[in-house]
Each structure stands twice: as structure tokens, then as C-alpha cells.
Design a protein around this nucleic acid. Structure first.
Lengths: 171, 171
DNA sequence: AAAATGATGTTCATCATTGAACATTCAAAG
DNA sequence: CTTTGAATGTTCAATGATGAACATCATTTT
């Protein structure tokens, strides 16, 4: 994946070994991250095809799974968990509601917030979709030792915490 | 990040320990993958803000970096490297061309293909943008030991190879 | 040579996502 | 109590990404 560049092919060996990290792709962390990003992209595309039969897409599944775990969550909280904007939820949730997969009920104490929950058919669809996603992930990662998966998970969670902290520090 | 679910809170301890992996979020690989996906999303958003001054977005940078490394690449090859559709390139490249960042010249041997290259200002902008991206990645990952970065990279590259193979097997 | 197959790039309709502007409602400060 | 500020959800225009249908050009088959 990182071969066949002919740019600067004439650079002599001495320079190439002495002058480290002149290009991004010479940085190990950079290359790691590019791999992560590409893997995510591919997984997303694969999942999209795997979910096609259920007529939902990854963003919808993200929503459904969170409603499955956190019944009565608000749109705002949902958006925060998914790291997307509120407006996005305002666009997607009415679709799911019209399909009879979710319900939106106004909170009694606070008339601003809408509390979300799955309907019966929504819960059933979610279970099917989660089964598909879990199978895909297991199938894709079953060659990776479990310890390495944990290392990856920990790295990513530290990264998430770090980026989120940076973000809130700016506000 | 995986606490506070009140769903099935009444499940007794025996069941919880004996019945493994009834829910996706109990699967270690599933949780790993969710973390990877969220981290990617956050990185993308952070990079978007970091690039705002240069008036380009991550997809443009992906293109520019590849043109920087692989001068004279075709649109098709570029789309393959970026794991996107050809139509996507047909939409984005004319924008970059109008901004004077890239050039598209028809191949002489094969009149179908357009060969892509950076202009002088395109190369300068790319270097600035790569500096920004590299700095962001280094800054975000400098707490992660280099060995763990390599483990992550290898895991991801195996995953990419695997998913790509699955894909071509279907055609 | 002619025809069929394949590869490359474009166009188009569709959809997810975003940020800004807005309305409503709540909470805090005066 | 009133005003001020913040939180929640909606609308809108703009953008990136996709797949299907199409047009060119190349390659292979017949």
C-alpha cells in the first residue's frame, strides 16, 4: 500500500536514511492512523451492504442501538453519544418514526426535550441488525488476537478522551 | 462510555456472568470496533476544523496527498486508493482544478484516462496541509507507545486486506 | 474487419451531514 | 417579577458520497 511512489526517486540512500520523517508517510503514527481511517471506511461500506436487506444504513443502526441501550434518551443526548449535530437527529428521527420503529414523546417536566424509545417492531429490527453487525465484526476480526483487540480499544478510547477534552477546552 | 444502561438492570449476577455475549456491547471485538469508529469520526471532525484556514476539507487533502505521492495517477487509480467511487472524483477534481491546485491532462496512449498532477500552488498548499495533519496526529497519539501504534497499524492493515479480498471474491 | 466485452470518466437523482438562524422553554440573575 | 442567558429541537441551504445510466475509447473474440 505504501510502495511505488516515483516522486523523489532520485534521492540518494544516505539522505533517505539520515533525514527521518520528512514526509508524513514516514511517520509511524501517521501511517497507523491512515490504516485506521481506511479500515473504518471499508467497514462502513461493508456494513452498509450487509444491512441493505433491512433497509437501514449505519447511521440508523447507530441510533437504534443507542435507543435499545438507553431507553428514554433525549435527542440531544443521542446526538452527543453519536458525535453528530442536533440537526442531524432532527432529520433522521422523523424518518424512523414514520416507519414505526421509534416513538417520540415530550418530556412532562421539561417541555423542550423529546424522549425517544423503540417500538416493538423497532426493537425486533434492531436485534436483527445488531446480529448482522456483530457477525460482520467477529468475522472480520476473528484473526486478530483478543489481546490486540484490547490494545486497540484502549488506544482508541484514550484518543477519544483526549480529543473530547481538547474540544471542551476550546469552548 | 459503556455504563449507565438501565435496560435489563434486573438481570441477576449469575446470568450476567454465565451467559456471555448476549448483547453486542458485551463482545470485546465489538466494543473495540465501536471505539475505532468513534475515534475516526472525532479525528475527522478535528482535522476538518484544523484545515479550515486553508479552505480545504479532509477529502480534498486525501486527494492532494495522493497526487503529491503519485504524480500522473489517473482518476480511477485515485478513486481506488481512496476507496471511493469514480463519480466522487468527477465531482471533486474539477473544483480543485478551478482553484488552480491540480491539472488534468489526457493520456496520449489511452484517450480515456486523465492524468492528474499538482500545480506549484497545489504542492505548496498540500505541504502546509500535510504539516497540519501530521502535527494533529502526532499530538493526538504521542501518548501511545510506538509499539502499540504498530500493533494497531498491523491489525488494521490485516483487516483492510481481508475486507478487500472478500469484496473482490464477490465480483 | 466487425462485434462483443471491458475500462474510464461524466451526469444525475438521492441521501446523510453540517452549521447558521430561528422558536420555544427553562433556569438564573437582576 | 422581569430580564437575561442557556438548552432543546427545527428549518434551510450547501456539500460530500453514492449508484445507476450513459458516452468514449480500448481490448478481445469471432
Amino acid at each position: 500500500m505504501f510502495n511505488d511512489e516515483h516522486h523523489f526517486a532520485a534521492m540518494n540512500k544516505k539522505q533517505a536514511t539520515i533525514e527521518h520523517h520528512h514526509f508524513p508517510w514516514d511517520h509511524p503514527r501517521f501511517r497507523s492512523w491512515i490504516a485506521v481511517a481506511r479500515a473504518c471506511q471499508l467497514m462502513q461500506q461493508t456494513l452498509t451492504r450487509a444491512l441493505a436487506d433491512l433497509d437501514i444504513k449505519p447511521p440508523h443502526l447507530d441510533i437504534l442501538i443507542n435507543l435499545y441501550r438507553f431507553e428514554g434518551i433525549s435527542q440531544q443526548e443521542l446526538a452527543r453519544k453519536l458525535l453528530v449535530g442536533r440537526s442531524n437527529m432532527s432529520m433522521l428521527l422523523p424518518q424512523l418514526e414514520k416507519r414505526g420503529l421509534i416513538e417520540r414523546r415530550g418530556d412532562e417536566k421539561d417541555k423542550r426535550v423529546l424522549r425517544l424509545s423503540l417500538t416493538k417492531s423497532g426493537r425486533e429490527l434492531t436485534e436483527q441488525a445488531m446480529e448482522i453487525q456483530t457477525t460482520l465484526i467477529e468475522k472480520s476480526l476473528d484473526n486478530e488476537p483478543i489481546e490486540e483487540c484490547l490494545i486497540v480499544a484502549q488506544s482508541m478510547e484514550r484518543l477519544i478522551a483526549r480529543l473530547l477534552k481538547e474540544e471542551t477546552d476550546l469552548d
